[in-house]
Write a protein that binds this DNA or RNA. Sequence first.
DNA 1: TTTCTTATGTTAGTTTTCTTAACATCTCTT
DNA 2: AAGAGATGTTAAGAAAACTAACATAAGAAA
Lengths: 134, 134
Amino acid sequence: MSDEIRRSMPLFPISIVKSLTDLSARQIRYYEEHNLVHPARSEGNRRLFSFNDVDRLLEIKALIEKGINLAGIKQVLSMQKVPDNEPMDQEQVEEIHNDLSEKELRRLLQQELHTAGRYGKSSLRQGELSRFFH
Amino acid sequence: MSDEIRRSMPLFPISIVKSLTDLSARQIRYYEEHNLVHPARSEGNRRLFSFNDVDRLLEIKALIEKGINLAGIKQVLSMQKVPDNEPMDQEQVEEIHNDLSEKELRRLLQQELHTAGRYGKSSLRQGELSRFFH
DNA sequence: TTTCTTATGTTAGTTTTCTTAACATCTCTT
DNA sequence: AAGAGATGTTAAGAAAACTAACATAAGAAA
C-alpha cells in the first residue's frame, strides 16, 4: 500500500480531530465549508478525517495563529501542493485567481510580513502530524 | 513524544476498527470482555482504540484463523509481551496459570501444531498495523 | 446421542455523538 | 455606522455505539 494511500485513509471522527488539533468542531466545519479541507464521509454522513486532513488542519491552525485570514490560507495551501515540474491544472489556476485579487493578496502578505515577522519555510512545513505518528 | 505513547493514543471508534481488522463489533467486544484487548473509553463510554489495540486485534484474528481458542490466544499474547530480562509481575503469572491448566495448554498447542503446521515466529509477529501506517 | 461450552449473530432499547441550520457576537475594514 | 469574516451557541434530528438478552452452530464431553 502506498504511503499516500495510507495517509489519506479516512480514520478519525471529528471528536478525535478536535483533540488532535485543538480546533473547535465549528472551526473544522467552517474550514471545510470554505474548501480548505475535504474529509471523507461515512455511509451515515459523519465526517472521517485522514492523516493528511489532520496535517492540513494543523497547517491551517498555524497560519490562523499568524493572523492570516482564510482567503490567504487557501492561497498558501494551494501553492505548496504543486510539484515543481507538473503543471497546475486549469481549475487550480482559476481558483487561485478567483479567490483573491493580486492586490488583495499583496496587501495580505505585506501585513503578514509586518505583524508576524519573516515569512519563512517554517510556516509552510508539511506533515506536522508525522511528528506524532509513524 | 515517545513511540509507545503515540501507539497507545486512543484514536479510533469501533466502526473504523471493524473495517481495519475485518472483525465484527460483536467479536471485538467479546475479546474485550475476555480481557484480550483493553480499548480506552470516551467520556460518553464509547470505545476508543489505539494503534496498539488494532495491532493486537490483528494478532488475535490471525490466531483465531489458525484454530486457536480464546484461552490459547490469551496465553500466547501474555507470553510475547514479557521482555526477556524484566520479570513478570505476580498478576501476570497468576493469570497465565489460572486461565488454563498445563495439561489443557499442552493439548491445545499440540492440536495447533497438528492442524495449522509449524508454530513459528510468523504467528507471533507484532506490529501488523505498522505495515499500513508510519 | 444428548448435553454443555464457546464463539458469534441478531435484536431491542438507550445513550452519545455528529449533523445541519439558525442566530448571536466580536473584531476588522470600509 | 454598517458590513464582512470568524467563531460560539443552541436546537432538532439522524447515525453510531452501548449493554443486555436471546439464538444458534460447531465441538467437546458425558
